[in-house]
Simulated assay, not measured.
Amino acid sequence: MKTRSVGIIGVGHVGAHCAYSLAVQGIVDELVLVDINEQKAISECQDLRDSVAYLPHRVEIRTGGYGDLKDCDVVVVSVGVITKSKSRLDELHVSIEMVNSFVKQVVDAGFDGIFAVITNPCDIIARQVHKLSGFDKSRVFGTGTGLDSSRLKAVLSRETGIDHKSLVAYTLGEHGDSQMAPWSHVSVNGKPLVELAAKDKKYDVDKDAVLKEAIGGGWVTFAGKGCTEFGISSTLARFVYAIFHDEKVVMPCSTQLNGEYGQHDIFISTPCVIGKNGVEEVLELNLTEEEMAAFQHSCDVIRTNIGYINEEA
């Protein structure tokens, strides 16, 4: 039976918690931790080994270098430097330099799996990893608005009283302040929210306030902790589980668009089918004119910042 192996590059707050989620949930058989701070990787490795010692499943955890990732099924890119700025885009230049330093090394070592990108700004970094790796677009994706979409459902659940598992709702676009919610596609077990709101006031939510809270939740976490950890690690674990179990589950993630929504050569979040081959299908939603304008604005924000990279190249 094939070993389910995941490598994590960058085991700071986010990377370490991603490793913990994958290990404790029994999603992986093997974890390979890589960090430029070798002692940090060694220490996290020991702590993770201690954490799984009494679990009912077995997980092998070790440290290594880029060459040790060659047999991994998935490599998680979680490098970065946390800034105090309230904009993920402020991490752009440092993050680009970091991925530029190792992606080709990982591929040249023989890695032929799937890159899952957490590093911010997620959409632009996923595009850069795709460019550097030369992989098919299906094998490079960013977690994008996956967590934001879950938060949107959580806020809607609180406002309507409906369990989040019965809600279908996404945020699309940039993993950042310009993301938008296609309200025309929000439903409760197939019933459009707008139709329900016409008959029952509990469904008539303040859409702007709900979206603002969903987008801003990460900064609420950051304000007291100086980082975000638990939410994104659960999101990453969900993606990896879907890949290993070939679920064909629909989740929003940052993927390359090639004509969808009239966009080309840009990584941005939209619902996708996630299975053993990574992003197996992009599901293009039919957006209203207002929603399309908001999505286009988000694309423009990403392209503006991609331009900063090109100017420095």
Results as ranks from 00 to 15, higher is better:
3 T>I: 10
3 T>H: 02
6 V>N: 00
9 I>Q: 02
9 I>W: 04
12 G>F: 05
17 H>G: 02
30 E>D: 08
33 L>N: 01
41 A>W: 00
41 A>F: 01
49 R>I: 08
50 D>Q: 13
50 D>M: 05
54 Y>Q: 14
55 L>P: 04
58 R>N: 13
58 R>Q: 13
67 G>V: 09
76 V>Q: 05
80 G>V: 04
80 G>S: 04
81 V>W: 00
82 I>T: 08
85 S>H: 04
86 K>A: 09
92 L>Y: 00
98 M>K: 03
99 V>E: 03
101 S>N: 15
111 F>K: 07
113 G>N: 06
115 F>I: 08
120 N>P: 01
128 Q>T: 10
129 V>K: 03
130 H>S: 13
132 L>S: 05
132 L>R: 11
132 L>T: 10
138 S>D: 12
150 S>Y: 04
153 K>M: 13
154 A>R: 12
154 A>N: 13
158 R>A: 14
159 E>T: 12
160 T>E: 01
161 G>F: 05
163 D>V: 05
171 T>A: 10
173 G>N: 07
175 H>R: 09
179 Q>S: 15
179 Q>H: 12
179 Q>F: 02
180 M>I: 14
181 A>V: 15
183 W>E: 08
184 S>I: 08
184 S>Q: 12
185 H>F: 11
187 S>F: 06
187 S>A: 15
195 E>G: 01
200 D>M: 08
200 D>C: 07
201 K>E: 14
201 K>H: 12
202 K>Y: 05
206 D>R: 14
207 K>E: 15
214 A>H: 09
221 T>V: 15
222 F>S: 07
222 F>K: 12
224 G>W: 12
226 G>V: 10
243 I>P: 00
246 D>H: 14
246 D>W: 09
246 D>P: 06
248 K>T: 13
260 E>K: 06
262 G>S: 08
262 G>M: 09
263 Q>N: 11
270 T>V: 15
271 P>W: 03
276 K>I: 06
279 V>K: 01
283 L>H: 13
283 L>Y: 10
284 E>S: 11
287 L>N: 10
288 T>F: 06
288 T>R: 10
289 E>Y: 05
293 A>G: 07
297 H>P: 05
299 C>I: 13
304 T>L: 03
306 I>E: 02
308 Y>K: 06
310 N>H: 11
310 N>K: 14
